[in-house]
Design a protein around this nucleic acid. Structure first.
Length: 488
RNA sequence: GCCUCCUUCGUCUAGUGGUUAGGACACAAGAUUCUCAAUCUUGUAACACGGGUUCGAGCCCCGUAGGAGGUACCA
């Protein structure tokens, strides 16, 4: 396949949806796989829903995900402008041409009349749709009404002939002419195009070769094909991607969980993990392999491995991907990320001090396989960088034991801590193990009060390494404080 | 209601006429273990149903059922 030109064309109404990211990803991958171009186009044709923040969010998420674009509003290109609100004359021009050639007409029906019509049709249990009243207006009459300043829309004249086209993943799609929407609006009364007109005009002018979009567009694809044909323009190849569903089988929405890319980003997801997971929702490489970098996907992606059926978004599996990617970081890489998170949480200074760096390096291997999300790190590391709020006394006491046993363990442990800054954590561990044995305690029970005293929690990263990161003096102070609590 | 699309373990999927139907997530059990994780081993679990075609069907055809999407001067 050569000469691939694809695009991502979101409408800036809100935060980028996870489904949008996947559409962008597949477009991007197709372009990269075949050495083509991937461009961005802003479909801001609905003035009532326009949200300027959405455009920034779009750039943010695409950059975060690592998808770069060759042309777009921010970087120009040979087919600009790439913002539809700046292309209004173009749409008007093609709409006028359709009128001139007998494929469209002006309609002066008011929105009120249309709602009345619709409610009447519903009451009578009739199929809904425009009644084509303005079709009978002569061109002269229509011209006159328009010149007098009457607001109007431009509607497409729906033909009765059946329409068929080839979808690259679904195969042949056919629709009887009578089942097509009746004379859909192409140009709205505010002078903005509807999606249909804008899509056809722009994807022709911008020389799009493949239209990859969500399957919810499938029902209107026959209309688009008709428009291309009426205008005498070559049809692009259509690729309708399977929908992303929530766990109940309905279209993924907020009640299923996070849906905007920003939410995933803020929840501590790694872009590489999200992208990898998304690539596998509706596409597969063919074998058993599941982990791919973006660069690998760019080489492997192909249209014929795209799936037909909708897929349920599995948050659990995404979490697993994220945790796996986290474990893939080297210790220095992870230490740097930990410091970033810790500083965001106000636990460390920015830039980090040498001492903090050393602590992060000591903790990195200990938390690596315990993290699912990067933003869990501050909670796990708080006791290293700051003083934990002391746990309730009851927490210090082992399950099979009393306050006295806990106190005696702490008393036995405090002297062992002396000099630990100069020892390896393994050496300290040996001392602790010997003492536990001497007291006839299992290491797990023995460590319980120590863990709670030092970390402030019953669950913590491995103690010996952690104590090294906390430092002898602070460890000792915490152990002594806990001992006092128990003996008072 | 009408139109269109879809249908392999609970979920994501491999499979392109001959397989003990494979992998991953989740779940369960065990091992390991200073807590929690991670890791390792094992296990439960699927071709929606009914007809054809064929020596042979998860794979091809036709129905049925179920699910989803669409039905706007929204995209």
């Amino acid at each position: 396949m050569n000469n691939v030109r694809v695009r991502y064309a979101p409408s800036p109404t809100g935060l980028q949806h996870i489904g949008g990211l996947r559409t962008a990803l597949f477009n991007y991958l197709l372009a990269r796989a075949y050495g083509g171009q991937f461009y961005l186009r802003i479909e801001d044709t609905d003035q009532t829903r326009y949200n300027p923040e959405a455009v920034d969010d779009l750039y943010d998420t695409l950059r975060w995900a690592g998808l770069d674009w060759d042309e777009g509003p921010d970087r120009g290109g040979p087919f600009g402008p790439y913002i539809q609100s700046q292309r209004l004359e173009l749409y008007r021009e093609t709409a006028e041409r359709l009128i001139a050639e007998g494929h469209a007409y002006r309609c002066f029906c008011t929105p009120e009349r249309l709602t009345e019509l619709r409610t009447w049709q519903e009451q009578q249990h009739l199929p809904s749709g425009y009644d084509r009243r303005c079709r009978s207006l002569s061109p002269d009459e229509a011209q006159k009404l328009a010149r007098e300043g009457n607001p109007y829309v431009i509607r497409f004249i729906q033909t009765e002939a059946p329409v068929a086209f080839e979808d690259e993943i679904l195969g042949k799609i056919e629709k009887a002419g009578t089942d097509l929407p009746i004379d859909p609006v192409l140009l709205k009364s505010d002078g903005y195009p509807t999606y249909h007109l804008a899509h056809v005009t722009d994807d022709h002018l911008m020389q799009t070769t493949h239209v990859l979009r969500a399957q919810e567009w499938l029902p209107s694809a026959p209309l688009h094909v008709q428009l291309f044909d009426a205008l005498g323009w070559p049809r692009p190849k259509y690729v309708h991607l399977p929908l992303i569903l929530g766990s109940d089988g309905q279209k993924l929405s907020k009640r299923h969980g996070a849906t905007s890319v920003r939410q995933f980003k803020e929840s501590g997801y790694l872009p590489a993990a999200l992208v990898n997971y998304l690539a596998l929702l509706g596409w597969s490489a063919g074998g058993d392999r599941e982990f791919f970098t973006l660069a690998e996907l760019e080489k492997l992606f192909s249209l014929d491995r795209l799936n037909k059926s909708p897929g349920v978004f599995d948050y659990k599996k995404l979490e697993h991907f994220n945790a796996t990617y986290l474990r893939g970081f080297s210790e220095p890489e992870l230490a740097a990320l930990l410091l970033e998170e810790a500083s965001k949480a106000g636990l460390t200074s920015t830039p980090a001090t040498e001492a903090e760096k050393r602590q992060a390096e000591l903790m990195a291997p200990l938390v690596r396989e315990r993290l699912t999300f990067l933003n869990e790190a501050p909670g796990m590391l708080r006791f290293v960088f700051a003083e934990p709020t002391p746990a309730p006394v009851a927490d210090l006491i082992p399950k099979k034991g009393t306050a006295e046993t806990a106190a005696s363990i702490l008393a036995a442990v405090i002297p062992l801590v002396s000099g630990s800054d100069e020892r390896t954590s393994e050496a300290t561990e040996e001392l602790f193990r010997a003492k536990a044995e001497e007291l006839g305690l299992k290491l797990g029970d023995f460590m319980h009060p120590v863990r709670v005293a030092v970390s402030g929690s019953k669950v913590s990263p491995p103690m010996f390494g952690s104590m090294k990161a906390v430092g002898e003096a602070r460890v000792k102070a915490r152990l002594e404080a806990a001992w006092r609590l128990l003996t008072n």
